[in-house]
Nucleic acid binder design. Structure first.
Length: 427
RNA sequence: GUGGCUGUAGCUCAAUCGGCAGAGCACUUGACUGUGGAUCAAGAUGUUGCGGGUUCAAUCCCCGUCAGCCACCCCA
């Protein structure tokens, strides 16, 4: 036998067999439902963009290291989109005066980043993006967080299992000011904060001092990062939490001064959701307020708030927690068997009749041993199998078998659809 | 891009000191010529990821490469 040579899939891509596709569609359905519950409109942008779009505002890492860039046949530098926000900013800017605000848009589609694949990270992934533009208020921030919480609740994650951690850039800036940390080293301090959970305390302390912090600044920073009540003196956050209370999602949300987020364009509230079991150490979703983005890409000033959620991490979390619904192999719960060469047309005609009656029906595509056909129905998880043999045809009947109970009855052909529906309805 | 672990049948994994490549599940056939799941019986399955090296002999040791996983980096 010749050796089978299978050309491998591109590194970092995932192949969606029906079982995996069902999970992706499940997630899509929940995202869509949460988005629409708050009145967001679905939209999308091109998958291919010029690299210039990202060079304008995205981080250097994203553009130079992580973007898939290639030349098209005309010599233009084209990239597979690594994120959606620049496309959003452009599309808003092009129609800025024609759109109705506050504008609420959501999207779900593929993105590509040239990363080293590992748990929770692939090079080709799907991402839910949702944004509100045209309003700059803590209540708008709260709405986006509420959408995220609504999603988490809808997939069966409780507040004990998943939590959204919130912080505020302006609050932290004022605190850093109070500690005498200059504006130009703020980025380094943010990275320092981001890194704290990943380093041992003494190593982190040494690292912090190495970065130029004084001992008193370090002490102040540590006190700051442990202060879970800091939000109570900051109006943006007291209003945010009041709104979350009113929206009924307060239990999913927690203030945490350690949440910084690397993206430069965030200006106010920032948030990230995590699975509390720690099985996956990555954020399930993350977002925040960006007040300068439109102006940065050449539009008129327009503030926005939004977040993104990748399909990979949430998929792993739901699988580890057993929250993924059971896979139903066949979309058609009914199999019409084909008895033999002389009767296949009867079966095909019956399957058409049943489809006309509104049922999803698979007809076996060739005559085969009846046992083989039943086995197929069983493996495909079908509820009902129909047998149309010589006896049934002669009597104008069809045999309807309930695959779960094993019971079978013969009914007049005209009543078949009704009998099947009754079986399907019986849980 | 840096460092580490792993790769054996379709799947999950075994193979002692370097000495003929194994099991369970799944699969095929039959027990059962008009009936799936359960049981029993029989059967098929491998360039041990790929390429090279050492050796009388390599799944095992060495080098390279590809892929997966883990920690960095970054982030969804």
């Amino acid at each position: 036998m010749a050796k089978k040579v299978i050309i491998p899939a591109v590194k970092g891509t995932r192949e969606f067999y029906p079982e995996t596709m069902a999970l992706r569609n499940f997630l899509y359905g929940k995202m869509r439902k949460a988005s629409q519950a708050f009145g967001y409109q679905e939209w999308d942008a091109p998958f291919l963009e010029t690299i210039d779009l990202y060079a304008a505002k995205s981080g250097e890492e994203l553009v130079k290291e992580q973007a898939f860039v290639f030349e098209d046949r005309g010599g233009a530098r084209v990239t597979l989109r690594p994120e959606l926000t620049p496309s959003l900013a452009r599309m808003i800017a092009k129609k800025q005066r024609q759109l109705t605000y506050p504008l609420r848009w959501w999207s779900f589609g593929p993105f590509w980043r040239y990363e080293r694949p590992q748990k929770g990270r692939s090079r080709e992934f799907f991402q839910w993006n949702i944004d509100m533009l045209g309003v700059s208020s803590p209540e708008a921030d709260a709405e986006l967080i509420a959408v995220a919480a609504t999603f988490l609740r809808s997939v069966g994650l409780s507040p004990e299992q998943a939590r959204i951690f919130v912080n505020n850039r302006r609050l932290m800036d004022s605190q850093f000011d109070a500690l005498g940390i200059p504006a130009e080293s703020r980025l380094d301090v943010s990275n320092l904060v981001d890194r704290r959970s990943k380093m041992k305390p003494d190593v982190w302390t040494a690292y912090a001092l190495e970065q130029g912090l004084s001992q008193s600044q370090l002490d102040g920073l540590l006190a700051l990062l442990d202060n879970k009540d800091l939000w109570k003196d900051w109006e943006e956050l007291t209003r945010l939490f009041a709104a979350l209370d009113a929206l009924g999602v307060r239990e999913y949300v927690e203030f945490d001064p350690n949440i910084m987020r690397g993206l430069l364009y965030y200006t106010g509230t920032v948030f990230e959701a995590f699975d509390l079991s720690g099985g996956v150490r990555r954020a399930i979703l993350g977002g925040g307020r960006y007040d300068d983005l439109l102006a940065d890409v050449g539009g008129d000033p327009l503030s926005g708030v939004g977040f993104a959620m990748g399909d990979v991490v949430i998929g792993i979390v739901l699988q580890e927690r057993g929250l993924v619904p059971a896979f139903e192999p066949s979309p058609a719960p009914v199999l019409v068997t084909v008895f033999d060469e002389s009767l296949w047309q009867e079966s095909y005609a019956l399957s058409a009749e049943l489809r006309d009656a509104g049922l999803n029906v698979t007809c076996y595509p060739e005559p085969a041993k009846i046992g083989k056909q039943f086995k197929f129905a069983n493996k495909m998880g079908m509820r009902v199998a129909i047998v149309l043999g010589a006896d049934e045809v002669a009597a104008g009947q069809v045999a309807v078998k309930d695959m779960r109970s094993g019971e079978q009855e013969s009914v007049p052909r005209g009543e078949a659809a009704e009998t099947i529906s009754r079986i399907l309805a019986s849980a």
